[in-house]
Amino acid sequence: MFRRVTSKPTTSEPRFAIIASETDEAQSAVRSLTKRYPLCGRDGADVLVVLGGDGFMLHTLHDMLDAGDTRPLFGMNRGTVGFLMNEWRPSGLAERLAKAKAITVRPLAMKATRCDGSVVERPAINEVSLLRQMRQTAKIELSVDGRVVMPELVCDGVLVATPAGSTAYNFSARGPILPLSANMLALTPLAPFRPRRWTGAILPDDVAVCLRVLEPERRPVAAVADQYEVRDVSEVRVTLDRSRALTLLFDPEHALDERIAMEQFVT
């Protein structure tokens, strides 16, 4: 999925390595940076420069979580939207890294129980979503900290989003945009049929959200943690994982917290 670039760094340059997607745009950017800077191998780097789009950044973040790697990431957009990325600019990279603003994001922890009783646990940086697998609508019971807050939601699905993910799938489903400092989670229905007027809820991020599938054999539901899908689930528990944190670096004028706040005024 990515190419590692290795070169011997000099003491006058920051120790960083490049992780790039396999797209032509990203590989062209690798060649440009390789000509300009002394690079080190990934294991010896203090900062990892990620070249690609938001999807590749999410993939890289999950790799970091799986490896227990807490080093900061500085992304440059060589993809499409690039919400999690900085502007592509090959010049002045060392200075940009020195001045970058650090943003900490914490993942959700998804514990999905399948109908056969097996359990799958996965992190999610943007959101955990439940989606109907067939033509029938899903029926889902919603609980917060063990209290049933909605006995039956008839819908295409429902999701729990972090502030970092609130401008992604959550926003397209008409969920709220959450500032990074809000310490909140968004609980947002997907095409709700009953109750029709329920548009979701904003919850403190220290709660446990339990989504129990009603009639799972007749109305099968899949759970998705970012890009990882688990099919035929009967129950999904979602909490914020405070034991793990990831650090994203941004140009001060292009920082993620400011971009999320300004998304509220985009027309």
Score class of each variant (00 low, 15 high):
15 R>Q: 10
115 C>M: 14
90 P>Y: 00
135 R>S: 15
48 L>V: 09
168 A>K: 09
12 S>I: 08
132 R>M: 08
62 H>E: 05
49 V>Y: 01
6 T>F: 11
218 R>M: 10
76 M>F: 04
147 R>K: 15
212 R>A: 13
135 R>E: 15
249 L>W: 03
253 E>G: 04
21 S>I: 06
39 L>F: 10
39 L>G: 02
166 S>E: 05
1 M>H: 09
150 M>R: 13
13 E>P: 00
69 D>T: 03
102 A>W: 01
205 D>I: 00
114 R>C: 14
257 D>N: 08
47 V>C: 06
24 D>L: 10
191 A>N: 14
207 V>Y: 01
86 N>Q: 05
9 P>F: 12
105 V>D: 08
38 P>M: 02
80 T>S: 15
140 I>E: 05
126 N>H: 12
260 I>W: 01
29 A>W: 14
265 F>G: 09
117 G>T: 10
19 I>M: 12
57 M>C: 03
28 S>G: 15
41 G>Y: 01
139 K>P: 00
193 F>Y: 12
244 R>C: 07
265 F>T: 03
195 P>N: 11
157 G>S: 07
110 M>K: 05
252 P>T: 01
139 K>I: 06
144 V>N: 02
163 P>D: 11
139 K>V: 07
26 A>M: 08
92 G>R: 03
93 L>F: 10
84 L>T: 05
217 E>G: 06
217 E>P: 00
253 E>R: 11
30 V>E: 05
141 E>M: 14
142 L>G: 02
96 R>T: 08
191 A>I: 02
167 T>L: 13
251 D>P: 00
170 N>T: 02
192 P>F: 04
102 A>F: 00
163 P>I: 12
264 Q>L: 11
35 K>M: 07
